[in-house]
Design a protein around this nucleic acid. Sequence first.
DNA 1: GCGTTGACATACCATCGGTATGTCCAGATA
DNA 2: TATCTGGACATACCGATGGTATGTCAACGC
Lengths: 206, 206
Amino acid sequence: MARSDGGERRPGVRERQREETRRALLREGRTLFAGRGYADVGLAELVAAAGVTKGALYHHFPGGKTDLFRAVLDEVQQEVGARVAAAADVHDDEWSRLTAGCREFLAAATAPGIDRIMLVDGPAVLGWNAWRAMDEAASARHLAESLAALVEEGTLAPQPVPPLVHLLSGAMNEAALWLASSDEGPEALEETTAALLRMVAALRGA
Amino acid sequence: MARSDGGERRPGVRERQREETRRALLREGRTLFAGRGYADVGLAELVAAAGVTKGALYHHFPGGKTDLFRAVLDEVQQEVGARVAAAADVHDDEWSRLTAGCREFLAAATAPGIDRIMLVDGPAVLGWNAWRAMDEAASARHLAESLAALVEEGTLAPQPVPPLVHLLSGAMNEAALWLASSDEGPEALEETTAALLRMVAALRGA
DNA sequence: GCGTTGACATACCATCGGTATGTCCAGATA
DNA sequence: TATCTGGACATACCGATGGTATGTCAACGC
């Protein structure tokens, strides 16, 4: 159970190799899933790209293909969530935190290799409920907390927060998908971000 | 080429049987896809449920499983689009048409057997671009036209319409998914519809 | 009536996700 | 330091599934 030494972290060649294999699987999985979609990627090419075999994949991800995808999705969600949180945290007032977070979400979700995994295959592969739970934990929670705080401080009119969270979350997801697909450069991102923030701002008067 | 008769429509036992088979495939496909999702439905059980064989499926839908799904999705989209259009058409002023359409969309999309096909599997199976094109033709076009008219008549401030279409479309899609999954009865639908209409109404002041 | 063709049914195949088993070496133990 | 145990894989294999190629039979035009 407990280490015999004083809590030292000595990696050991064993654990290091393990981590490296897992990272390779995650990395190649992310690249392939982002590029051609979950369904069009076979396990054979996936493990070949990672330089391992199916045995390794099932050792690290007992649930197989979907389990690896879940791990990839989680990684992507965490990254996006972290970017949103970081963008919000540079501001003090709650309203700026919200708008900065929204802006950053659009930028992060439209970055290459994000939208297909996070917004298209995610719900289809894991089911909408599981996907929503992960999204909630990673990104939507920030949005929910921000909106709740704004209602609390009176900036937004008293109203049930959950519906608002879903409406805004859905609006941003679809906008990200649109921007990422018909990529017309950064001016489209700016225009859409402006439209989003106009809509959010309009809520203050409601 | 041309019929020898004067343009009469005599079905013929041949064509009638053909239509019946196609309808059976469509019906069973829709039921199964809605119930367990595209990936979890095998062709074997699908054609068995329809009382035909794989030969029939590939005869009517050369593209196979995805082709059948595309036809099912198209049917679903058309139905939802028709409901939205019908709800809007009972009003004369453009603003009422928009709000009625939004309300009806939420009701239609949260009806049993709609959301999974239209909003989850649709984008993943056919790709987001193809899905968006179908959605555009069936439902989002109404939204786009309505918003454009409202900007035109000055009810909404001058602004680019396409971003707004995507934001609102995405908001409604996500809301429908949420309502359909964690089904808490019609009061949740009312509450969310109210939140949506509040948000839309807020745009008038922006 | 008769050949043609459309609307399927049957038989078959390749591939893919998943599993069961084998192997080898790092590290704990004595 | 000799041993030996278990973790981290590799290899071999399997059933199922989507897809195809071929066969069949009756409706319809002539």
